[in-house]
Design a protein around this nucleic acid. Structure first.
Lengths: 251, 251
DNA sequence: CGGTCCTTTGACACAGGTCAAGTAATGTGG
DNA sequence: CCACATTACTTGACCTGTGTCAAAGGACCG
């Protein structure tokens, strides 16, 4: 795949642009996803969206955008995995989400992005000009309903994360996380088990409000108790998913 | 104020209904709020909204709705204060937000509410039939844009709360909380200082992911350090707001 | 095949939780 | 208006879960 020559963090797939209607299948904006079934776009609306869209690629561990940056684009993951995070001034980090194909990022009502985003693996995204997308919103209420549905879904997920961070033990957090990844895999049409871990222990800790050592110890403990098997460091089999859902605690 | 005779948790202000356009001034749906300035409704649209609206009142410490309940209404606080929370099966509680006049609650894309809501003080709300509101959305894109703006604002707040819960110390959490309340007061047109605390120490703990004792100790410590004065148990003067914003840590 | 990064594991420290007692504020019925 | 009960808050003593520091494999990469 040819990289763009400019000093950009993105490689733009201009060659594929003309076929994009076919290529953007897992894109939440142009296509229907399970949790945004409320609004279906007609072919004309789809093509207007595709007109303001570019597909881009980002290598593993490369930034997609930074919190301080002006929010000029919104993105939809089509392949790969992404982490989004916020930093405190002394460097403490909170990962606020891991995103997979179909997930949306960069939506904000301010000048700047609300968080930073970085690719965990080699990642492909649909990129939309924010300005042009907002102009389309006035004319396409269905699209806006879809965005509202997605925001609403994200908000519910954020509240689940708050109860995890505020009230769950380390073991409960790690179990909840594995269940969450398994659920996300199903939602995105992949097998629910075993679960792939495209992020480091450090990333997991920064998502779960734990140190990387505590994450590692919790995984070891779950393995010892026969709840999981570590196929390799980045692949976990849930041996007793029902018992795990019980531990995760009803949320 | 006359109470409704039915065994309802709400007292419905039917007498004020006819004048409601005047009474609902701080309602986010009918009226413009600072953070939803993107979309202004015309008088006709406002009156269509008022048609599907009822004003209701709830006494202090009374439920507004429960997580398990079917989500038939959405609400907008016009007077008072509300807490929204989620429970784990063993009773651990996470308060996911405190809501004040202008704030919205009950929006969901599922059958049921995503959380429970309870009045902290005597509270007045605008209540909308969810079904009728959703029907209006198709015809009023401006309204939908406003809801999207509000959801987007809430999402940003949820992410700030995640970094607080995941990465801040007890003292930083309490300071962040006081600053947050002060900011909210300004946003709602009240003085930024001193700050009123309509919730108990237990509620603060359940919001900040701390025990009530730790909240109390942190407040005592802030008082000892001269950063705050406790005018009474439910009223705090921020003596050094700038130093506090520093401690709160840039978020 | 040497270096780098990731992960695991151990030893120890400490922030914050838990338990308990005492005090202050608030409400209630007489 | 006052006794009493109840609820909220503070403070102390102690304990424990998780963080920190350190060291030693492993995996991966040039």
């Amino acid at each position: 795949m040819k990289k763009s020559a400019a000093a950009s963090r993105f490689s733009v797939n201009s060659a594929t642009k003309t076929h994009s209607l076919h290529l953007v299948h897992p894109c939440d904006v142009c296509d229907v996803r399970p949790y945004s079934a409320c609004a279906a776009l007609n072919p004309d609306e789809q093509s207007r969206l595709v007109d303001i869209m570019t597909t881009v690629e980002v290598d593993a561990h490369q930034p997609i955008f930074d919190e301080a940056e002006r929010a000029q684009h919104v993105f939809n993951v089509t392949e790969g995995a992404v982490k989004i995070y916020k930093l405190l001034s002394d460097g403490r980090r909170q990962i606020t989400g891991f995103l997979f194909p179909g997930d949306f990022l960069g939506l904000t009502h301010n000048e700047n992005y609300a968080y930073s985003a970085e690719a965990l693996t080699h990642t492909k995204l649909c990129r939309f000009s924010r300005q042009k997308l907002e102009a389309l919103l006035d004319e396409m209420p269905k699209l806006e309903q879809r965005l509202l549905g997605m925001a609403s879904h994200e908000l519910a997920a954020a509240q689940d994360q708050m109860i995890l961070l505020g009230r769950k033990s380390a073991k409960e957090r790690v179990v909840s996380f594995l269940i969450m990844l398994s659920n996300a895999a199903v939602r995105h049409g992949r097998p629910d088990n075993p679960v792939g871990l495209p992020m480091t222990r450090n990333d997991m800790g920064d998502y779960l409000g734990l140190s990387l050592e505590t994450v590692s110890r919790a995984l070891t403990q779950l393995k010892t108790q026969g709840l999981i098997q570590l196929l390799d460091e980045r692949r976990v089999r849930l041996a007793k998913p029902e018992a795990m859902r019980e531990i995760a605690g009803g949320v």
